[in-house]
């Protein structure tokens, strides 16, 4: 399986993402600069964390109009897995690939620490290797992760099982309904504030994030590898 890690000016989790895929997951991965106009040959698209365009105007607002975004929107429409982590999530929200918006953390502080997440839906292509209701530990690192959507949108997210991860116990940022990660209606675009790519090796404090990437590969194999 071939993964693309999109690199925007100001991305800073791209190398962690690359490492997670290449060294821990053991799949093919390439960096793709934001001005590229093709994503041909990639099976999955990863938007890493960081501060694209210095978070100017709003987080993700300027990156959303990068050249490569047209291709990401096409890939999402074609049903390919698209994962946005942290700033990647913010970009997907600004692009309208996911509903809602991000506000400053309720505490106004940048929070960087491991948090507990609960798997609310293990039937997505990103969470199939977890158990339903499993509690995992993954780090967060953000100043604007306070997810917001109106009541109507929230009801729709709940009804379609689009909420994949919630904060377990303490809500670190004030996010509505403890939301940490959501998919689009089709289930092939996931945005999440926690960093699974920083939790892929027990040497770094835990490997609970690795199953997310394994889920993507498993789901891809189920539909793409011809059974002998």
């Amino acid at each position: 399986m071939r993964f693309a890690v999109i690199v925007f000016p100001g991305s800073n989790c791209d190398i962690d993402m690359f490492h997670a895929i290449k060294d821990e997951l053991g799949e093919e991965v390439e960096y793709v600069w934001h001005d590229q106009d093709s994503l041909e040959g990639f099976d999955a698209i990863l938007l890493p964390g960081g501060f694209s365009y210095g978070d100017y105007l709003r987080c993700g607002a300027i990156a959303r109009f990068s050249n490569v975004m047209k291709e990401i929107i096409k890939a999402a429409e074609a049903g390919k897995p698209v994962l946005g982590v942290c700033n990647g999530f913010q970009i997907l929200l600004e692009a309208g690939l996911l509903p809602g918006a991000m506000r400053r953390n309720e505490s106004l502080k940048f929070i960087c620490k491991p948090v507990e997440l609960k798997i609310e839906n293990n039937e997505t292509m990103f969470s199939g290797s977890y158990r339903q209701d499993e509690v995992i530990t993954v780090p967060i690192a953000h100043g604007e992760g306070n997810y917001y959507c109106d009541e109507e949108t929230l009801a729709r997210l709940e009804e379609n099982n689009q909420i994949v991860f919630t904060y377990n116990g303490e809500n670190p940022n004030g996010s509505i309904s403890n939301i940490a990660g959501i998919t689009n209606e089709k289930g092939n675009v996931l945005g999440m504030m926690p960093h699974p790519e920083r939790a892929v090796d027990s040497l770094l404090g835990g490997a609970d994030g690795l199953k997310l990437f394994q889920s993507i590969v498993r789901s891809w194999r189920e539909s793409n590898v011809v059974k002998a």
Binding site: L57, A61, F65, E94, G100, A101, Y148, C149
Partner: peptide, 8 residues
């Protein structure tokens, strides 16, 4: 399009 995010 850009200057405001009309969701919030």
């Amino acid at each position: 399009k850009l200057l405001a995010n009309t969701v919030i």
